[in-house]
Design a protein around this nucleic acid. Sequence first.
DNA 1: AAGCACCATCTACCATGTCAGATGTTCTTG
DNA 2: CAAGAACATCTGACATGGTAGATGGTGCTT
Lengths: 231, 231
Amino acid sequence: MQPVEHPKSLNEVTADKIRNAIVEGELALGAKLSEQRLADLLGVSRSPVRDALAALQAEGLVVISPKRGSFVFTPDSHVVDELCEHRVILETAAVRLGITRNPSELTRQLAASCDAMQSALDAGDPHGYTRADHQFHNAIIESADNRALAKSYVLMISPLKALRTHLFTIMTENTDRSLSEHHLVLNAVRDKDPDRAISLLSAHVGHLAEAFRANLSTSQDGKISPATLEA
Amino acid sequence: MQPVEHPKSLNEVTADKIRNAIVEGELALGAKLSEQRLADLLGVSRSPVRDALAALQAEGLVVISPKRGSFVFTPDSHVVDELCEHRVILETAAVRLGITRNPSELTRQLAASCDAMQSALDAGDPHGYTRADHQFHNAIIESADNRALAKSYVLMISPLKALRTHLFTIMTENTDRSLSEHHLVLNAVRDKDPDRAISLLSAHVGHLAEAFRANLSTSQDGKISPATLEA
DNA sequence: AAGCACCATCTACCATGTCAGATGTTCTTG
DNA sequence: CAAGAACATCTGACATGGTAGATGGTGCTT
């Protein structure tokens, strides 16, 4: 049996709910967040909400303006470029380590993720495709077996996940190319060719950055309709 | 004149004080931290202390055990290896970007840091040497001109800074080799040779990791005497 | 009508109170 | 004397209250 079973603190579940609401698009980019209002919506006190917002600020999902209010982050094409560049740095370093350390496990995970992407595409399930995509890149990070690196990645990727949801609502992205690029990376990993994998991965994330830039310049502002937080 | 002058929130100054106390060695590794005791020592309420501890936990300097207490982090040779590996990843990526983006400014900063190290060494000022060392590596990160990367670096480097203070109290480290290694990196940057700079930088941080491992295995636990927090 | 001072209102910041869980000690019991 | 139960105490989790600062509107002044 498992060692313990620690119920998540109210603090954590609150942070999870708010993060989810932002990433899933229930809260518009730049939307105003009030400690009091969120506390009322979630049925908790202001304390856990305050802690949660502070944690989300560290993740880059929320910006807190002293005495003025908390707001969902607003994308900025320069910041998005920085995030993508950082992402490339972490993923390429991770894939090199992963190919060195446990190539077979990494290959297995990437293949499974590619299959999941294909299935989601066949089923016309964009949400499932996104999940499989995240799973693919997460497998790369995990394969490096370095918690410090993984922590950095998690702290950096949330805004990008949110942007994907907010900008690609109508499935603007080219999933066919995306899928084939994933397969190319998989093959490079299978061949234990880190340099090729890195090159392909860089190009892949670069294409994502391009898509972000294109959609950011057209939409100008995140004007997705705000929605309520679900229990 | 400057746009504004926002006084730091009590929250931040509290976090700064506690962080400083840990990094400077005033608080022993693994020392027990009580919200109440810290609040009394610093003359503030428990709220800012609580927020500060949460922030420091995100930095890896503090671990909070629910309902049990907060403690200064305790080093673990495996975790230290991971931190150093992560550090190499970020610094090597940064130096490559820096050489591409603004090599002259980077060269200037690195040269200045090397001079400061030399001066500190001549003056027998280990604390000054450490500061110059941090300045050197920070210049590399800043040169990449990527805030996301810089944020990751800051969040990762604090425990390493603290370890340096706690483990190298008697100046165990080989400052002569360290200085020469810094100069080699400087020369590679001056020559705009990213591959050589990366190789040298990896070796340099690798030596640091070795030193950490050596001292960790001998001391087994951080038993530096605890001290009071200064105003 | 334009500009400015005043004020109602909203915000996060910080202080304090209350409570349940974790721990160390003492007392009881075999 | 050993082992376990009951208790006192310490901790952080969470709730709530008070306050300074920021904002937006209103009415007065010119």
